[in-house]
C-alpha cells in the first residue's frame, strides 16, 4: 500500500474534523445557554461528554481489532488496535482533566474517589500499561498477538468494573454519594438541567459535540494509522538496503 502521499479520504477527514471542532466550539460558547447553578463553567461539560464518548468508542474499536487479529493475524489489525488505544488514551486523559475542572466548582474538590472516577483511573492505568507491554516485546508478530490478547482482557475487565459501579449505585445511592454521582454522569447531567428551551439547546449542543468529536476521532485514527504504515515502510526499506549492502 502506498501511503507516502496524503490519502484523499484522510485529507477530507482532516478538514472536516477541523471545521466540526470550530462548529462545536461555536455551539458551546454562542448557542448553549448559561447553566443556572454553575454558570459558564458548565460549558466544559460538552467537552467532557464528547471526549468520554470517543474514549469508549476507541477502546471498543481496539477490542474488535484485537479479536480480528487473533482470528486472522494481519498486521493492519494490530495497527488499528494500537492507533485506537493511543487516541483513546488521549481522549480519556482529556475527559479526566475536563471532569476535574468541572468537579472543582461542582463538588468543591478536584478529585473524589467515587466509583466512577475510580473506574476512569483503572481504565487509564490498564490502557497505559498496554504500551508498556508493547514496548517490552521485540518480535513484531508476537507483539501483535500479546497486545491483542491484552486488549481483550482489559476491555472485559473495564466492562465488569462499569457494571459494578452501576450495581452498587442502585443499591447504595447514599453511601456512594448518589447525588454527586448523578450530577456527574452524562445522562443524568442532562436530566438535572432546567426543562424547556434551555435544555433543548443544551441537548443540541451536546449532540453536535458528540458528532464532531467522533469525526475528530476518525480523522485522528486515520492519521495515526497512516503514520504507522509509513513507519513500517521505512523499516522495510531499511531492511532492503541492509540486505542489498550485505548481499553485494
Amino acid at each position: 500500500m502506498n501511503m507516502t502521499r496524503l490519502n484523499r479520504t484522510v485529507a477530507v477527514l482532516n478538514v472536516l474534523a477541523f471545521l466540526s471542532l470550530l462548529v462545536s466550539i461555536g455551539f458551546i460558547f454562542l448557542y448553549a445557554p448559561v447553566e443556572r447553578s454553575m454558570g459558564n463553567v458548565q460549558r466544559i461539560f460538552y467537552f467532557h461528554v464528547g471526549t468520554a464518548w470517543v474514549g469508549s468508542i476507541a477502546f471498543f474499536v481496539a477490542l474488535v481489532a484485537g479479536i480480528l487479529y487473533l482470528w486472522r493475524p494481519q498486521r493492519r489489525w494490530d495497527t488499528i488496535a494500537l492507533s485506537s488505544v493511543e487516541v483513546g488514551l488521549v481522549f480519556l486523559t482529556v475527559t479526566t482533566a475536563a471532569g476535574s475542572v468541572w468537579g472543582k466548582p461542582a463538588w468543591n474538590t478536584w478529585w473524589e474517589w467515587s466509583p466512577r472516577l475510580t473506574l476512569i483511573t483503572i481504565a487509564w492505568l490498564v490502557y497505559a500499561a498496554y504500551f508498556m507491554l508493547r514496548g517490552a516485546i521485540e518480535d513484531e508478530e508476537k507483539r501483535g498477538r500479546f497486545a491483542a490478547v491484552y486488549v481483550i482482557v482489559s476491555f472485559v475487565s473495564i466492562i465488569l468494573a462499569y457494571v459494578s459501579i452501576r450495581i452498587w449505585r442502585d443499591i447504595h445511592p447514599v453511601v456512594f454519594g448518589g447525588t454527586l454521582e448523578s450530577a456527574q454522569g452524562a445522562e443524568q447531567g442532562l436530566q438535572d438541567i432546567a426543562p424547556g428551551l434551555a435544555s433543548m439547546r443544551m441537548g443540541i449542543t451536546l449532540t453536535v459535540n458528540v458528532v464532531s468529536f467522533s469525526l475528530i476521532y476518525v480523522a485522528w485514527l486515520m492519521n495515526r494509522i497512516r503514520l504507522q504504515l509509513l513507519k513500517d515502510q521505512v523499516t522495510t526499506l531499511k531492511m532492503r538496503v541492509a540486505a542489498r549492502l550485505q548481499g553485494g
Binding site: D139, E140, E141, T235, T236, M239
Partner: peptide, 9 residues
C-alpha cells in the same frame, strides 16, 4: 517451499 520470517527478516 518452507518460508519463515521473523518480522521482516
Amino acid at each position: 517451499g518452507l518460508v519463515k520470517n521473523y518480522g521482516v527478516t
